[in-house]
């Protein structure tokens, strides 16, 4: 179990990162699934079994990835809303199981990457009005997020040991089947596997 103290701004950012209403980001590949379904109809008609198996396998891989991502986000969201707020010192105390802390690190690293890309894009965007008025694009929002994510990562870094990170990552990769994976996330604290 890890304990991490987060300030209000950091907490707000994390809640919005894992908020289920924003899960649409996880569903980008669903359109691809529909394409596969259409091809499937074609092969089902002429009983091309090897092709059918291959297409179902493709679907399965995409869906399992979606399910695991959903589950990671959902579980982390639950951890966040259970965090206790210390009124006097104005911080949230996040109590998080080791395997979930590793997932948190992974998600924040990806989010940080996205923010940096968005920031660079915004910086380089040539906005006509800005150009006329010799103004620069406002990237302060992205910079703020970048700083907050980095500061959260620093806090978790102090708590997680490198070999622990490696072990948990390996276990997460090994849990291929959805039910086994969900049990691993739900299960006790896996500090010394």
């Amino acid at each position: 179990m890890k304990q991490i103290k987060l300030n209000i701004e950091e907490m707000k950012l994390l809640v919005s990162l894992f908020s289920p209403i924003n899960f649409s980001r996880l569903y980008m590949k669903i359109e691809g699934l529909e394409g596969i379904s259409n091809s499937l109809d074609k092969y089902l008609n002429n009983s091309n079994y090897s092709k059918i198996t291959k297409l179902f396998e493709e679907k399965k891989v995409i869906k399992e990835k979606i399910i695991k991502n959903q589950l990671n986000h959902l579980t982390l969201y639950e951890v966040l809303i259970k965090a206790k707020y210390n009124k006097d010192e104005k911080y949230y105390l996040l109590e998080i199981k080791n395997q979930l802390a590793v997932l948190l690190v992974e998600s924040i690293t990806f989010a940080l990457k996205r923010v940096v890309i968005q920031k660079e894009k915004k910086k380089n965007e040539v906005d006509f009005m800005n150009y006329l008025n010799n103004r620069k694009n406002d990237i302060s929002g992205f910079e703020n997020q970048e700083n907050l994510y980095s500061s959260i990562l620093n806090k978790i870094e102090k708590e997680i040991k490198l070999d622990e990170l490696y072990k948990i990552n390996k276990s997460l990769d090994d849990k291929k089947s959805i039910d086994v994976y969900s049990e691993y996330l739900e299960g006790g604290d896996y500090a010394c596997i």
Binding site: S19, P20, I21, F23, I67, Q70, L71, H73, L74, Y77, E78, I81
Partner: peptide, 9 residues
């Protein structure tokens, strides 16, 4: 999973 998350939120 999506429904559970949305209702919870």
């Amino acid at each position: 999973q999506q429904a559970k998350g949305s209702i919870l939120e």
